[in-house]
C-alpha cells in the first residue's frame, strides 16, 4: 500500500503532473515518440489520480460514530472523495 504521507507529498501531485504531461505530449507538434505514447501516460496519470483521491490525508479526520447527515465538505476533508 501507499503510505498517506507519500500519497500527499508525491503520489497525488505526481499523477496530476502525469495527466498534464500526457495532454501536452498528445498535442505537441514536434516529437512523434511522445505523441505515440501520450495516451498511455494520460491513462496512468488518470488511474493514479483516482487511487490517490481515495487515500485519506495524513491528519485523520474520520467521522467516528458514522451517523447523521454528512456534508460533502466533511466527506472530502476526511478523504472520501475527489479532493
Amino acid at each position: 500500500m501507499i503510505s498517506r504521507e507519500f500519497n500527499q507529498k508525491y503520489f497525488g501531485p505526481g499523477s496530476i503532473t502525469l495527466m498534464v504531461a500526457g495532454i501536452l505530449f498528445l498535442c505537441q507538434p514536434w516529437i512523434s515518440f511522445l505523441h505515440a505514447w501520450s495516451v498511455l501516460v494520460m491513462l496512468i496519470g488518470l488511474i493514479g489520480f483516482n487511487i490517490s483521491v481515495h487515500i485519506p490525508p495524513p491528519e485523520q479526520l474520520v467521522d467516528e460514530d458514522d451517523t447523521g447527515p454528512v456534508s460533502i465538505s466533511k466527506t472530502v476533508a476526511a478523504g472520501g472523495g475527489h479532493d
Binding site: 495532454i23 498528445l26 495516451v39 494520460m42 489520480f49 483521491v53 465538505s73 472523495g81 479532493d83
Partner: peptide, 23 residues
C-alpha cells in the same frame, strides 16, 4: 476515447479545485 481520456483528466483536476473552493 482518446479525447474522452484527455477531457476526463482535465475534469478530475477541475473538480479537485472546485471542491477546494467550496470548502
Amino acid at each position: 476515447y482518446i479525447v474522452l481520456i484527455m477531457v476526463l483528466c482535465i475534469t478530475n483536476i477541475y473538480v479537485k479545485y472546485l471542491n477546494k473552493a467550496k470548502e
